[in-house]
Design a protein around this nucleic acid. Sequence first.
DNA 1: CATAAGCGTGAGAGCGCTCTCACAACCGGA
DNA 2: TCCGGTTGTGAGAGCGCTCTCACGCTTATG
Lengths: 350, 350
Amino acid sequence: MTQPTGRTRRTSTTLEEVAHLAGVSRATVSRVVNGSPRVSPEVRTEVQSAIERLGYVPNRAARSLVTRRSDSIAVVITEPTARLFSDPFFPRLLRGISSELAARDRQLILLMPDSAADESRTADYLTAGHVDGALLVSLHANDPLPDRLSTAGIPIVLVGRPPKGIRASYVDVDNRQGAQSAVGHLIAGGRRVIATIAGPGDMAAGTDRLAGYRDALAEAGIAPDPALETTADFTQDGGSVAMSRLLATRPDIDAVFAASDLMAVGALTALAGTGRRVPADVAVVGFDDSPVATSTTPQLTSVRQPIEEMGHEVARLLIAAVEASDPVPRRVILATELVRRASSAGRPSP
Amino acid sequence: MTQPTGRTRRTSTTLEEVAHLAGVSRATVSRVVNGSPRVSPEVRTEVQSAIERLGYVPNRAARSLVTRRSDSIAVVITEPTARLFSDPFFPRLLRGISSELAARDRQLILLMPDSAADESRTADYLTAGHVDGALLVSLHANDPLPDRLSTAGIPIVLVGRPPKGIRASYVDVDNRQGAQSAVGHLIAGGRRVIATIAGPGDMAAGTDRLAGYRDALAEAGIAPDPALETTADFTQDGGSVAMSRLLATRPDIDAVFAASDLMAVGALTALAGTGRRVPADVAVVGFDDSPVATSTTPQLTSVRQPIEEMGHEVARLLIAAVEASDPVPRRVILATELVRRASSAGRPSP
DNA sequence: CATAAGCGTGAGAGCGCTCTCACAACCGGA
DNA sequence: TCCGGTTGTGAGAGCGCTCTCACGCTTATG
């Protein structure tokens, strides 16, 4: 065997070498590696020990070339800077996805386009067939990506309920139920003038949580009041401004449900600015149960989401879609849990 | 051409087809695609238009098989859960790395091992040659990964100065200088009894920031006092406990420099618990300039790190190492910037 | 004018794997 | 006993690409 010229190359062991050592053909080694049942037990163990002895690892590129699968999954995070950097949602989700993919022996290819040009390049990349499927993390309305990918035949699964008009599998937490339990908790604590700072109207998490808020009021027989509902952009500053706006029209508010912890923090700031005490004068509940919820004074009651579990679920769904090439969209909704802390303690005298 | 049986397959265009359309050989198309200079201008444009017309995209697997490069880079994040989820460092870093890799047409393969078994599997994966190099993000002391990879000939670059004994390229921020400027700012504000809550002694960021603290005191001619130095684990609770410990021995403290914003938040809580006012009685400065710095009352003065830039730099360094197969370790140190906010306002009467 | 030296291009091998097909060995039923 | 079926294994093609080598042509050099 002639040694090629040029720089050192780590020549890793090949199927051929394993086959030779085990005294069988390449095909048989391939069968063992891929778990085909059509191999006699004796030959199987013989091959396995050869693999062990040589430290053989299949060459992904070669396999990929013939199978036309890459065994890799793209995770696309298209999110404006602000939230991406302040919300622990993304690392937690990635962790969940990562552990599921690792367990299934898939590569996680991360794409974080941060400009329009980038997004178009991302779409090109994905449709070029370099990945078996894609997980789309935080879709904004009118994002052309889902359509482009569906057209190209690339399986996708979305994290969070997609904007209207997009037909695709997704995994979401039960935002509506979570919000309802949060507001129900406020009502149970004796609050009656309950405002909400909802999320953007073009995001499912925004509208669903608002719906849950209304559900809880309806269930308690409290009439809804548009003056108690406002929206913000999930950020702290937005929450602060929204709270001030609410207080200006309804100074008698005794509780507020914010659709994110960050907005709840903003609300706390605004409330403190008007001299109101939390929870004595106004109770506050957030959503997400992010770390910031325990760094405020008082600590924030919040709705916890099973984020890692979302990651697992979304990865599982995508792998199933890739393997089945089964176009029936599925959705998985995960339950939330209310975490009670000081910011929503019931009022002493109801 | 016979159509293979089985499910639909998206057959993408190949070099062969482009070559045929352009009336040249595969080799020439390959030259054009890879930017070889040995192609006449006429042929080049002819080929390019054929590529355009067919929407040709090279098959990575096939290329990889022959070049023995994967054009993909692993990013390994080995970090205990707590910090990963509360610290926006990671998403920001990933963004920086991602944009650099995308620009250089490399895939970002994300690995987040979350158990010992996982870590061993990660090492196996990396040494199997599936990636051209690896970026190791938050190395703990005694991590065997750098050594294993170096031995296997996989180029690595570290984020943050590595623990002693590891010889590898890395990118870090100037922790020492950053800490020094923070403490210098406290001194300039008239503070004299300045404590520090340092990070863990086995992390470079911990020891470097402590050194910067001492530098600033020395420069101002203030004698160091062991009773004013304590360490914590970069978490909020740790910071709170540490602050209480400091106050117990030195109730006359008039300023504290915490080596992370989270610890600074903990310190704020502990200070409030003893009735001390910030900044009137005690000034507080953090490190990281994370979003939490603006959600506290008062807002936190902090040392900002160019995290995205770190991501860019570290990716650049790794690609250079891969291409040059040049084993000379390099290090790049990036400057920090002090962001002044209310928590460290100078005292009215010095 | 002969020879050398470039330059642009094509032919063809081969990267490591999977998968189809052929085939030998063995089985049980008529 | 013969034959169709099953089972385990091997031979060999070929996935799409790069890269070496050879070749014909043009241009400088002695």
